[in-house]
Design a protein around this nucleic acid. Structure first.
Length: 446
RNA sequence: GUCCCCAUCGUCUAGUGGCCCAGGACGUCGCCCUCUCACGGCGAAAACAGGGGUUCGACUCCCCUUGGGGAUACCA
């Protein structure tokens, strides 16, 4: 059996660190099992779905490297849902209801005030054909509810263990709106069946839906997929991600802030497990070490600082070849020696520009002792320079001036880079070159 | 209101009655490396939410409290 996992976002908003986990986990699960990954746009809510959000989702997924093998969108598949709905009506599981939203709201309020669960009372089930005709004559159009079996629907969840959803405490879900359009519930089931989805990996907020959807799948005569409901990601304060945080931690915002996609993937793939939070350079490596059963049931916290550290780790591991194109784009491709020298000092990729400027100039040298700097300049050996040059030169300067340690090196760093911190100078010096080095030691911006 | 789930170092967690005066990872702190920052290496500090049971013995089982989260839509 080929594993097919799916990610089914609705294009009604942006992807963020919370909801992207469904995509990541689904992808990792499918790939580790040698299976396929389906991206399905659940765009049945035409009020809220937009093409812009759909595009954004695809852009984000592509940027993260979560390529799909199969693509579908529900708005293309209405006919399939119509026939499934017809089959359910045929089976007597889908029944027409005529209450307006306001009427339903009133019923709910009443139930609540009587301290009763706000469950739909199935009044519509008792309507006679004459009554239905009368309501339609009034101009009412029906919406359609799925008649739930009032039993506990159990399933074995890869994360939650055995779960039982008690349908008795649930309202019969509306599957078809008054205007004939579908809510997500039925299309989701129909598509999971038709695309032979074997594993549904989604947030724990869907557990109740799963109970309902299993009943629908059964009513349609289909097997249910395996479910994995992971616990929800909370914000840094240990509270649900706020609207504000959703925006700040959207994939788009993180991309624009200069985070590495693999930093996001690496962190999110291991957060919530006891597996080491290590920076991995490829999704395949991440998939190899991914075990969905390592996820716990408790909610987990997203700490932005962890992403920063992960991002730095990714950069520290990135080989020149992998960085080359981006270095060129940034106008900072000064070769492998440069990249290897400066990458341990990077927190974000864009920081590389600062070090490129230190190498190529212009920088303003900081000279505290002009005589010393001039003496040092005089000792600069002839080119070609390599990694040994720094040692040779500073040895010579030390002999000449009698300085050593910090008193020797810091003034050189300040003069050569204009900064009191940075990558090792033995690596930087050959890149700076004799001409610039000499000018800087003489206090000339270069 | 009702139902469901959760509760171990700062964070993510291991732990399924004795192996735990609680293990790992990240962070923190210290030391080493070192001209600096960073990287890297080594080491240390750091937790069982509270209260009752059950038991010879509870982080582990039960109950309550407290605190969190989710669901309860003609959203997904």
């Amino acid at each position: 059996m080929t594993v097919i996992a799916r990610f089914a976002p609705s294009p009604t908003g942006k992807l963020h660190v919370g909801n992207i986990r469904a995509a990541l986990f689904s992808w990792l699960y499918a790939k580790k099992a040698g299976g396929k990954y389906l991206l399905r746009l659940d765009d049945t809510d035409t009020e809220r779905s937009t093409e812009e959000f759909a595009k954004g989702i695809e852009t984000d997924l592509e940027w993260l490297g979560l390529k799909h093998d199969i693509f579908a969108r529900q708005s293309d598949r209405i006919a399939e849902y119509e026939s499934a709905a017809a089959a359910l009506k045929e089976a007597g599981r889908l029944y027409p209801c005529y209450e307006t939203g306001a009427e339903l709201e009133r019923k709910r309020k009443l139930q609540l005030s009587q301290k009763k669960p706000p469950v739909y009372d199935r009044a519509a089930l008792k309507l006679t054909d004459d009554e239905k005709r009368a309501l339609e004559a009034e101009g009412r159009r029906p919406h359609w509810r799925f008649k739930l079996d009032s039993e506990k629907t159990g399933f074995d969840d890869l994360v939650q263990g055995h779960v039982a959803v008690d349908a008795a405490s649930l309202s019969d879900p509306v599957l078809v709106r008054e205007d004939g359009s579908f809510l997500y519930t039925l299309p989701s089931v129909v598509d999971d069946i038709e695309f032979r989805v074997t594993h549904v990996v989604r947030g724990a907020d869907h557990i109740t839906n799963t109970g309902v959807q299993i009943q629908i799948a059964r009513a349609l005569g289909a097997e249910q997929p395996v479910y994995a409901h992971f616990s929800l990601l909370q914000g840094p304060e240990g509270r649900p991600l706020s609207k504000r945080e959703d925006a700040a931690f959207s994939i788009e915002a993180l991309r624009e802030a200069g985070y590495e996609p693999m930093a996001i993937n690496s962190l999110l793939a291991r957060l919530g497990t006891s597996d080491a939070h290590e920076a991995l350079l490829s999704l395949d490596e991440l998939a190899a070490g991914f075990d969905i059963s390592h996820l716990g049931r408790a909610d987990i916290r997203f700490e932005p600082a962890e992403l920063d550290r992960m991002n730095a780790s990714i950069l520290h591991l990135t080989p020149y070849e992998a960085a080359r194109a981006r270095l060129a784009d940034a106008g900072c491709d000064l070769g492998p020696a440069f990249w290897d020298a400066v990458k341990p000092n990077l927190a974000r990729f864009a920081d590389v520009a600062e070090w490129a400027r230190v190498v190529r100039g212009p920088i303003t040298p900081v000279i505290e002792d002009a005589d010393f700097a001039a003496e040092a300049a005089a000792e600069l050996p002839a080119e070609p320079w390599d990694i040994a040059t720094w040692g040779l030169w500073t040895e010579a300067v030390k002999g000449k001036t009698g300085r050593k340690g910090k008193a020797l090196f810091m003034p050189l760093r300040l003069a050569l880079t204009g900064l009191d911190h940075g990558p090792e100078l033995k690596n930087l010096l050959p890149l700076i070159g004799r001409e610039r080095a000499e000018a800087r030691l003489r206090g000339v911006s270069h």
